[in-house]
């Protein structure tokens, strides 16, 4: 295998103990626009790449665009079962919660990945299925981007975290540090993300589960040395003019 191909295959760095402690149900919540969908899609694909049967459910009832359902075909190609509303309603902004989602949580051997909508408003949908949650067999991941305007300070993050926990009726078991500015992410933006998450961890007791870093950052960011499990992220939620082979930002700068 070429060096490039090997590098592309890397999904996790320094994450052995995290991966051995995985739970069957994995819920991604967080502030609005924190990157839950991209994280959930990558997490599901990475699980599938490890040979696990995976189901992903799009529970985003607050966003009209850029939802995980938009990449459903790609997910299915990787053998992932995608629970999304009927095709006829796929572009509707209706709060549809499929009964199959509750079923997937209650029973089955597949790993389940749930992509919630943002903020307490988006997480509220969980309350309808929280009863079905297998006790102690789920992770409630809180996705955090320190460059989002409403999650810039530890107090603000802790506030949203507790509101989401209350609205959804589930426990938040770990933070996912996802500090980025899309194509303008510098290493210090990622590091600023840890520092914020560490302060939140001190204040709330909710530790850092893992750090998400885009693949193109690997040559600048010391993933192995950062002290946390690192999930390598490939961007799937692309804008129509963004090429999957990444032509370079300067060509598109407006």
């Amino acid at each position: 295998m070429s060096e490039k191909a090997t590098r592309e295959a890397v999904c996790w760095v320094g994450a052995e103990s995290f991966l051995s402690g995985l739970k069957r149900v994995n819920i991604f919540c967080g502030g609005y626009g924190s990157g839950k969908t991209e994280i959930a899609v990558n997490f599901a694909l990475h699980l599938a790449a490890r040979g696990k049967p995976v189901k992903i459910a799009d529970l985003d009832i607050v966003n009209p665009y850029f939802r995980s359902r938009e990449v459903r075909e790609e997910l299915r190609r990787h053998g992932i079962q995608v629970l999304v509303p009927n095709e006829r309603l796929i572009s509707a902004d209706l709060p549809i919660v499929m009964p199959e989602i509750k079923g997937a949580i209650e029973t089955g051997n597949e790993a389940v990945v749930l992509d919630l909508g943002g903020d307490p408003a988006g997480a509220r949908v969980m309350a309808s299925i929280a009863q079905a949650m297998p006790k102690d067999d789920y992770h409630g991941f809180f996705v955090l981007n320190s460059r989002r305007p409403f999650t810039r300070t530890p107090a603000a993050v802790a506030g949203i975290m507790s509101e989401i926990s209350r609205a959804s009726g589930m426990a938040i078991t770990g933070q996912v540090v996802n500090s980025h500015l899309i194509d303008e992410t510098a290493v210090d933006v990622v590091e600023e993300g840890f520092r914020l998450a560490e302060e939140v961890s001190r204040d709330t007791g909710t530790g850092i589960a893992f750090v998400a870093v885009e693949r193109s950052m690997l040559d600048r960011f010391d993933a192995a040395g950062c002290g946390y499990p690192v999930m390598v992220l490939d961007r799937h939620m692309l804008k129509p003019w963004e090429d999957s082979d990444r032509l370079g930002r300067e060509k598109f700068k407006l």
Binding site: G33, N145, R147, R148, P149, H180, L181
Partner: peptide, 14 residues
């Protein structure tokens, strides 16, 4: 001021 990541609608509001 540091750059932030914003949805177009939020940024228009700000």
């Amino acid at each position: 001021m540091a750059k932030v990541l914003m949805k177009g609608n939020e940024a228009i509001g700000e």
